[in-house]
Write a protein that binds this DNA or RNA. Sequence first.
DNA 1: TGGCAAGTGTTAAACGTTTAAATATAGTTG
DNA 2: CAACTATATTTAAACGTTTAACACTTGCCA
Lengths: 355, 355
Amino acid sequence: MATLHDVARQAAVSTATVSHVINNNVYVSPKLRARVLKAIRACNYQPNMLARNLRTNKSKTVGVVVPDIADPFFPALVRGAEDVLADAGYTLLMGSSDNDQGKEEGYYRTFLERRVDGLLAVVASDRPPEYVQRHDLGKVPIVFADRAYTDIPADFVGVNNSSASKMAVEHLVRAGYRRIATVTGPLHLANARERLAGYRQALENAGRREDPPLIREGNFDVSSGYAQTCNLLNLRPRPDAIFIQNPPMTLGAFRAIQEWGLRCPTEIGLISFGETDWFDVVRPAISTVFFRSYDIGATAAEVLLRRLAGQLGGQPIRRNVSVKLLARESTERTRPQGSSGKGKRAQTAKNEKLS
Amino acid sequence: MATLHDVARQAAVSTATVSHVINNNVYVSPKLRARVLKAIRACNYQPNMLARNLRTNKSKTVGVVVPDIADPFFPALVRGAEDVLADAGYTLLMGSSDNDQGKEEGYYRTFLERRVDGLLAVVASDRPPEYVQRHDLGKVPIVFADRAYTDIPADFVGVNNSSASKMAVEHLVRAGYRRIATVTGPLHLANARERLAGYRQALENAGRREDPPLIREGNFDVSSGYAQTCNLLNLRPRPDAIFIQNPPMTLGAFRAIQEWGLRCPTEIGLISFGETDWFDVVRPAISTVFFRSYDIGATAAEVLLRRLAGQLGGQPIRRNVSVKLLARESTERTRPQGSSGKGKRAQTAKNEKLS
DNA sequence: TGGCAAGTGTTAAACGTTTAAATATAGTTG
DNA sequence: CAACTATATTTAAACGTTTAACACTTGCCA
């Protein structure tokens, strides 16, 4: 593989000159420049970033660690980050932590050894591990996406969980559901707690009393969604709507409802949090509070870039992506008390993904 | 950030000694070793991989380029690769090509500049671009996953498309379907051509004549699946089964069938190629020839590792992951000619994802 | 006792860049 | 034309490692 020296020899100039024409920050005469460029082409020269980065002490590289790239929530997030980072000339190192702080730290270290310019992380837990408490991240900027450490001030991009939850539950209330249950995520995660808080607030605002058995803690995956929904459906009186706080658990809930033989929008309402591709394929199509994980990744990357450019003050910043209610069939109840136009929400569901 | 020199000074030894204890290939006395280790800890030393890699001319890094990490097919593939590569001490650089050879080449170059030890690619098209023809990949090993360039001998890991297709169509035949249509992928891709070939072979083996209008070329995404299925459903006589050659197109097909109001297993059979999470959630659950893209990524990575270790001869090798038929509800026809036990296939569908 | 082998550390060059400082060349001016 | 100035190029040090080659101790044996 050709080096700067080869090119220099070929063009009969010094390596400095070659370097100057490559990163043209120093004037070099057109004549020489041409000669150098020709030599570069002749040698099929490709700069060695290892050397360049060693010298300049920056790598044009950022490390991304997510719990699991194979989990449907994260690929789009990573893609969002990739798009904005690639535009800015950065390339991505990637790792999956499996929600294990050990693996997570492993990736941080690996990435730092490779001298990434910044880190973008969806953390394994919101309890900050020891190494991040003592700020051992080598002073490289890190922005957290989707989940934040409690009590650690740092840039963060996510979604406003409580307000989004409130939207979901308010929708159920408006649709005329009376006994509204919820299946939360694991409550050691701030995200899950915030979503629960939103649920409570919405009920309170609607003047409903909270009924503890209607609140079930899941762990964000299919089987807990199934199990907790079963528990809810066994209650007497039965809840008439469930707000289930992420898509995988919704899959479990959907199954349970089917197996129970309940008619979905009428006997039991269902609304989810987040989006997945089959929500509008199944019947009934599933209502949800919608946001793009792509947006989270993209704006997290933007924040990181601005942080790297020093455009951000000393204060950590927090950004939320926009959320909107997608009312589909699973909450299409013909309401007892006729309130507003009732076909209005139905049409949102059609032709959404088929553009 | 502490360097080898800092540690050396701290421990009052030479940098060489420190280096020796770090990569303990040279004997150093227990006494000194202890002193050095203490110094390393005291300085919170982290090796600078840029420098190390520059010196040793290897980076313990591999570049992965896929068409789109947000496409549901690829995350698991990447995860498979990540798992085996991480075990071997490699870290991943990742990029999405959007099936654009320009972007693809861009990532190759970026990765090569960063001196990856190897590349793992799901190529944008099976026509080899100019730079790979002139073998301009700087002599780093590359293994192709899922899609191969035609006429370029190189390591490849994928799925046996024609045999898998044959399995699907044979299943339809056994289930008693008579007019079996198919929606293919874009036929400029070898994958799509091979799947079509398998379809043809199965029909031929069953003694059926091929009927050209029953073969429709899609482009592997939702809308083409929808459109081509509509075309098929408009035919008279109508096909009574469709083999649709990937999951996104299957989504389109599913929608079309629903809108047409056709009863699925009975009036129209449906079988897909590959797997996605909603196949066994929708009703009817969708039959498919199943394989794991995770396996493709993992074995591709294994092949790459063995190639890097020089354990592979001069010949490029080809590996296929295993495929199995998942007969679910969408092909559950009560057959005219009573052949074998008829409840047998039904139960495969239950409790599959709910473990 | 001189010499040698084995055992343990160090010196210094090298990897491929960037870049401050030095130098050479040409151009202007008093 | 000497003395600057401005312009264009080169020299050489540095980035943080690895590693071949060398050097210093010991201990052992002839």
